[in-house]
Simulated scan of single mutants.
Amino acid sequence: MTRPIGVYLIDDHHVLRQAIADMLDGQDDLRVVGQAGDAKSGIGEMETLLPYPDVVVIDLKMPGQSGSSAIAQIAQSHPQTKILVFTMYDNPAYVWSTMNAGASGYLLKSASRADLLRAVRSVAGGGGYLQAEVTMPLVKRLIQEARVAGDRGTLSVREMHILEALADGQSNKMIAKSLLLAEDTVKSHLRRIYEKLGASDRAHAVAIALRQQLIG
């Protein structure tokens, strides 16, 4: 007989956590092997379990250690364990960061019972799971990141020089003098740079350029 999928729950909402445990334990192929109200105690208890849980269902916002940092810790120490984020936050930045940290799935607490069961089974089987409601915002973020990355190549040599001057804190007048340009020409270049990088001002442009490694 195949061993049931061992699931560990980490969530500071006790009533919700117990309801999820009862639901999962009602399935023949799933078994809740433990639960905790915070990440630190949950990680500590999981280290005492043999075998280590197959799936960890974890919230993001809890007292003490955050779910995000716990995800990275679990993924590093037990890469074979699958992690499913179960949270109320649909911010694409959270989806992006938790998936990068090692999570295999992301589910909102507004999800149906069927969605939760499907997500647990999917990640346990080596797949991933993104709830439909978080997929579109994430795709939009990925498109924006790709657009910014793609625009690197469209920056001219002159624009790169101006970006580097911005990073050095030079004013428009100083940049114009050093590059032998009219100040109005520098302003025109800046407008194009902001547009290409999706920046709102000088500081934002420099921040994006540093993050995208356009300048050192």
Rank of each mutant, 00 (worst) to 15 (best):
P137R: 01
A114I: 15
K109Y: 05
D28L: 04
I162L: 11
L9V: 03
Y129R: 02
S104F: 05
H14R: 12
R158Q: 15
V33D: 06
D151G: 13
I208N: 06
K173N: 13
A149M: 14
S68W: 09
M23F: 13
D151V: 05
A111Y: 05
A101E: 03
V57Y: 07
Q18S: 13
L130D: 01
G105E: 02
R31T: 15
L190P: 10
S97Q: 10
G153Y: 13
H161C: 10
Q131Y: 04
L181R: 11
I43S: 02
G42L: 03
N100T: 07
V148F: 15
P4V: 01
A199S: 13
I175S: 12
T135I: 12
A182S: 10
M1Y: 14
M23D: 06
L155F: 08
Q213H: 11
S66M: 04
A182M: 11
L138I: 01
R158I: 14
Y94D: 05
V206W: 01
V123A: 02
S69L: 13
L142W: 12
V148R: 15
D54W: 13
M136F: 14
W96F: 15
L84W: 09
D184F: 06
V85W: 05
L155R: 05
S77W: 07
A199G: 08
I162Y: 08
R3L: 10
P53A: 03
Y94F: 02
S68K: 09
D22R: 08
T2C: 10
A75R: 08
A124E: 07
Y94R: 00
Y94G: 00
I162E: 03
R147H: 13
H13G: 04
D90L: 01
D184P: 02
L117Y: 11
E47T: 14
G150Q: 14
I43E: 06
P92H: 00
A132M: 10
L138Q: 08
M88A: 11
L84D: 06
A209S: 07
Y129A: 03
W96I: 08
V95R: 00
D90Q: 03
H14W: 07
R158P: 12
